[in-house]
């Protein structure tokens, strides 16, 4: 089985979000970048496929040279090869088109992406890859087993979960549940050393136009101060009369 894990390179969850150049660009100053948390769960699941079922695992990112340390980290965790598609990731659709191209060329059986990236929160790239390559698609995937050409998946839905049966080629939008936090791997020295000599292919982007364009960013208006009350009676009154929430 050939697996491609799509890795989004995102600001660490505790990052302060600021913008520069007249609020048109994300300010990367002092920001620590990491593997998107949803993708980290998927990468670990892919490692299990590799170890238990002999799968080959590649990772891919659409981005500039600055994302390479994130791809190296994925190699240190255990991926066999990395691919960077050399272009600025602007909108989800164009990223999906670049990745769909890699998927077609590489003949991957299983593509693992995340439910959403924590920066642009698009929640669209994996589904678009599936539709562009004609693969089956399961989103908010919290469990996955593959036997030969058949897959059984569990997905989260509003108010519960459901078990689904499908076939390869398959794309999933994964999240926690694929593996648990305690299963996530931190690269060890040996992994880091090995990662240095693993292939990291840089591919030029296929020329594709953007369907959407972010014009400007805005930070939410600062919140007014909290109203502290010292008894529940005042709280109930405020919630009813002022906030109209009950």
């Amino acid at each position: 089985m050939k697996i491609l894990v799509c890795i989004s390179h995102v600001p660490d969850t505790t990052s302060k979000i600021n913008f520069t150049e007249g609020d048109t660009k994300f300010d990367t100053n002092g920001v620590q970048f990491v593997i998107n948390p949803n993708d980290e769960f998927g990468l670990t699941r892919a490692m299990w496929f590799k170890e238990k079922q002999g799968a080959t695992v590649h990772v891919a990112n659409v981005g500039g040279p600055e994302t390479e340390p994130t791809l190296r980290k994925a190699l240190a965790i255990g991926a066999d090869e990395a691919i960077r598609i050399n272009t600025v990731a602007t909108d989800g659709y164009s990223v999906a088109k670049q990745l769909a191209n890699v998927v077609k060329e590489g003949g991957y059986d299983l593509v693992i992406g995340g439910r959403e990236s924590i920066d642009y929160n698009g929640g669209m790239v994996p589904g678009m890859i599936a539709q562009l390559t004609g693969a089956n698609f399961i989103n908010t995937c919290i469990g996955l087993e593959v036997e030969g050409n058949n897959a059984t998946a569990v997905r989260e839905m509003d108010g519960g979960k459901e078990t689904l049966k499908t076939t390869l080629p398959l794309v999933i939008g994964g999240q926690k549940g694929l593996v648990e936090e305690s299963d996530l791997r931190i690269p060890n020295m040996r992994g880091i050393m090995q990662a240095r000599s693993k292939p990291l292919h840089v591919k030029e982007a296929v020329d594709i136009s953007n369907e959407t364009a972010s014009i400007q960013f805005e930070k939410p208006a600062p919140k007014g101060a909290v109203k502290l009350v010292d008894n529940v009676e005042d709280l109930v009154n405020l919630l009813h009369n002022e906030a109209k929430a009950i």
Binding site: A96, M124, G127, M128, A130, L132, N139, M157, D158, E211
Partner: peptide, 23 residues
Amino acid sequence: SSINSKFIAPLLAVKLDAGYVPN
């Protein structure tokens, strides 16, 4: 923004060749 809507959206975007913005 329901889970099911977000499941459909990327498939629909490709079918209609439409730009999609969530949230």
